[in-house]
């Protein structure tokens, strides 16, 4: 199941498709660099990034936003799970 999280706000138009978020996420939770295992998914269209989604096991830890160089992932503070 996939759903959009409230704490990490994706700004798709700013995403360059660098996959740094997926490298960081997979390393954090699986101890390996493997975009396929990341809990954040950058889906590309023929010329751009089409969507940014999160898998159901995303913990909102924010490591993806912490290392996003392009401001495409905004960490919304102050909300409790």
């Amino acid at each position: 199941m996939e759903y959009d999280l409230s704490r990490i706000e994706p700004i798709v138009k700013k995403c360059t498709g660098c996959l740094i978020c997926q490298f960081q996420c997979s390393f954090q939770y699986h101890k390996e660099f493997n975009p396929a295992k990341a809990r954040i998914r950058i889906e590309k269209s023929p010329y751009d990034v089409q969507s940014i989604k999160f898998t159901s096991d995303c913990t909102n830890c924010g490591i993806c936003a912490q290392f996003c160089a392009y401001g495409a992932l905004k960490l919304i503070q102050g909300e409790e799970n």
Partner: peptide, 30 residues
């Protein structure tokens, strides 16, 4: 139109281009 980056790159020097007017209006290319 927007910058694009190679995997693992925080610079993003590549891009998508879109011509919005003139003879080649509508052309989109990366």
């Amino acid at each position: 139109r927007n910058p694009l980056a190679c995997p693992s790159c925080p610079i993003g020097c590549k891009c998508t281009l879109e011509i919005k007017d003139g003879e080649y209006e509508g052309l989109i290319t990366s």
